[in-house]
Design a protein around this nucleic acid. Structure first.
Length: 291
DNA sequence: CAGCAGGTGCACG
DNA sequence: CGTGCACCTGCT
């Protein structure tokens, strides 16, 4: 397959750790490290596009797309996906102002981390697959689903399947994608979203509370998965997903009670509308054993 | 080979 | 409303 030239993605700067963490740290499950390049580089699918995303030695980012894709549309899409318009400096400053020494440390450990702006549909599929699974396994599930049910964008690259397709797929086929008990969750969710005529894109405009309440009516979507969908699929930075890692980190670092609801409340009070970004900082630093 | 894994649903008190 | 398991299955 032929690729177009690499072109700069303006407004996005990374160090290597944060580049890898952002694309392949569990926010999204469709990126794989590219073998050919010595520069840090990932290849993957996002929405209806495929891209190679490369980190340059000066911290800038470049992207290339398969030649058969509309290069301008793809470039606009990767800028949006990498959330190039959002001022992370402002977010980081406001978290600094909390004066919390743990947050200050996490900000230093991850000076360039970002929150991806995925399609809500992709986030719903990915995070329904995620419960009680490792990232590598989640990635495999999403890839298998895409190969079996998703449209081929270009040779070897398939879109995440739409709910319409998942709703019509036999449960055996979904289970063959190694989803296990999550297969029923995903199918039921797809059927319900279709029955409700719900457009997941609405998650970006609904009130946070309303969006979360709706998400939790979906099978396989509890508090944690709903918060992940809101944070990574709808750019709702106030969402604070509490998983096993964060739970342990918050107990250890902030002496919170070992209770998900209490931890969410604690985070909301401490980090406010940027709680989700704070979660990524703590999650990434903790998982790497750096705090 | 057991035990566990970015949880959720459901049955109970 | 909070707690405690069962749920698939691939990996270590």
């Amino acid at each position: 397959m032929e690729w177009g030239n690499f072109t700069p993605v303006d407004g996005v700067v990374f160090n290597e750790r944060d580049f890898c963490e952002t694309l392949d740290g569990g926010q999204s499950f469709t990126w794989n490290k590219s073998a050919e390049s010595d520069a840090p580089e990932f290849v993957g699918v996002f929405g209806r596009f495929v891209a190679k995303v490369r980190l340059n030695s000066d911290g800038s980012v470049s992207a290339a797309f398969p030649k058969q894709l509309d290069q301008n549309a793809a470039h606009d899409a990767i800028e949006e996906y990498l959330d190039a318009r959002t001022d992370y400096g402002e977010i980081r400053e406001s978290l600094k102002k909390t004066g919390d020494p743990i947050m200050l440390a996490a900000l230093e450990i991850h000076p360039t981390i970002r929150i991806l702006r995925q399609n809500p549909e992709e986030a719903i599929v990915g995070f329904i697959c995620s419960s009680s699974k490792r990232i590598v396994q989640i990635k495999q599930c999403v890839r298998l689903l895409s190969e079996r049910l998703g449209e081929e964008i270009c040779p070897g690259f398939h879109r995440t399947p739409p709910f319409e397709k998942i709703a019509d797929a036999p449960i055996e086929l979904i289970r063959e994608c190694k989803l296990g008990f999550r297969a029923d969750y995903l199918k039921k969710t797809a059927v319900k979203i279709r029955a409700d005529k719900f457009d997941p894109m609405l998650l970006r405009s609904m009130s946070h509370e309303e969006a979360k309440t709706y998400l939790k009516t979906l099978s396989g979507v509890g508090d944690k998965v709903a918060d992940c969908i809101l944070l990574f699929g709808a750019s709702r930075f106030e969402a604070f997903p509490v998983d096993t890692w964060i739970k342990q980190a918050m107990c250890e670092l902030y002496s919170t009670e070992n209770n998900e609801k209490k931890i969410r409340e604690f985070a909301a009070a401490k980090f406010g509308r940027h709680a989700g970004f704070a979660q990524q900082l703590i999650f990434a630093a903790k998982r790497k054993g750096l705090i």
